[in-house]
Design a protein around this nucleic acid. Structure first.
Lengths: 261, 261
DNA sequence: AGCTGAGGTTCAAATAATGAACCATAAGCG
DNA sequence: CGCTTATGGTTCATTATTTGAACCTCAGCT
């Protein structure tokens, strides 16, 4: 792997910890030599991507990404475009609606709207959504090129609940269903007692960039209701995509869909 | 320079352009070979730091920084902490108040509060504040270690208006004044007709991390008023620092102020 | 004192980055 | 149409950077 890749992986690892860590720890977590980790950290620090606490000497994410994110968001205000649709859906469905974005090989939650009622599903912003065990993950994968599906299913698949599907062939079945009807359903895949439906937000080239998902308590959710949520998620996802990518057509399969292969 | 540094500089360069650019352009702007620039871009793209438009093949900032920024902000919500103080100051001073943050070697505007009156100074979020020509820049530099002041003053100093001070020795004088009274004044340094006062927000180790600045039309601002703004900026900056860094002491010069030297 | 584990540094050896030259494609033009 | 000149993208021998075992230093602990 390139040096740049390793340094960015270190940054990624650092970002996934919930506390600041010391040099030795971060080196171990990244399987890097201490000296190497240190050089990376120094270099990343020079550019503001990490910060070292002056007292504890531990490292944390720096402020450079904040600046970059502001610029990116100023030009591509994905959240600002998407949030109103998520809000509307949370109101009309009266369930928790969350939006995820694919970044750095993972699908992570970038916004959550809680419905105006007490008994609801809690989803945290920033949480990572496993591809095989969440509605969002399935919805995302189902619209990916086959090669990426294969790659995702070759990795070890964690069994989060008794209901988590971990057999790659069964998952392929779910993905086909999802592709056919346009939305996915996760029946207690990540947490017991929770059912979700999700639809992908797709870029003009057809590639998914994230997902809209409705999560509801299993106890009060009928089969009809979850299908209705799925249909609403598709509508919201398409609306976001259309608004975000402007007048560019969502042309199913455009001549320039793929870059190389 | 290390490979990582070069790649991050490329990212920085890309972030400073107001439009997407092609491979040849970005290579030229970074003084890199085309092949090298391409490898960097591919590597950065793998990790979501840049994106390539599928049609135009041009590159732009990706979504990874957005994710990192969310994490950083979730743990260190600098803006959320600072904004209320900026708002209060904008109301009490009845002038535009802006907050800047040091990142990647530059001071950039991260928040602006407009006062509730028609005739006011406009400052854009995201704008870069030159060290020698703005109140924020001077306030920041004045509390930096001497080595960084030297470094900043060795670079070419652009003359933005007839009043911009570009003589390094005169600037050193301004910095001493600033350090002595705790806030800086910029008299039409960046734009004609504008006077500003700024104070640094400092980390517990004493290093400035950003600045609070009040910007007013020169025409209605007396010497007394600008000094009053300066004093209020100091108060706001210190309040932000105290709230952001928690109970840690702002100990003037702690034993561990510097990392090496 | 002596031990342990932290952060941080060194320098010969190993490896990855480099860039001139290359190809492919598209647009402009006589 | 063929030529020119852009663009994005790729190759591979050369070269410079990265690497990591061993090292140092400091703080806390026995």
């Amino acid at each position: 792997m390139s040096t740049i890749g390793k340094a960015l992986s270190l940054l990624d690892t650092l970002s996934r910890l919930d506390k600041e860590v010391g040099l030795t720890d971060i080196a171990r977590l990244c399987s890097l030599d201490k000296a190497t980790a240190r050089r990376f950290l120094v270099e990343l620090e020079k550019h503001g991507f990490v910060e070292q606490d002056a007292d504890s000497r531990r490292y944390r994410i720096g402020s450079a990404p904040v600046r970059l994110a502001r610029i990116r968001e100023a030009r591509y205000p994905f959240l600002r475009v998407a949030v109103p649709f998520i809000k509307t859906l949370a109101e009309s469905s009266a369930e928790t609606v969350h939006l995820s974005e694919f970044s750095g090989g993972r699908l992570s939650t970038i916004h959550v709207e809680d419905p105006p009622r007490a008994h609801r599903i809690i989803v945290d912003v920033g949480s990572i959504l496993p591809f095989h065990a969440t509605a969002s993950g399935l919805a995302f994968l189902a619209f990916c090129p086959p090669r990426e599906i294969d790659a995702a299913l070759q990795k070890p698949l964690e069994k989060f609940t008794d209901h988590t599907v971990v057999d790659p062939e069964l998952i392929r079945g779910l993905l086909e269903e999802t592709a056919a009807r346009g939305f996915s359903i996760s029946h207690q895949g990540l947490e017991a007692g929770v059912i979700s439906a999700a639809a992908p937000v797709r870029a003009p080239d057809g590639r998914p960039v994230g997902c809209v998902a409705v999560a509801a308590p299993l106890s009060r959710t009928t089969k009809t209701a979850i299908h209705e949520f799925g249909a609403q998620a598709i509508a919201a996802a398409n609306a976001i995509s259309e608004k975000y990518y402007g007048s560019e057509r969502l042309t199913g399969t455009s001549p320039k869909t793929r870059r190389r292969d």
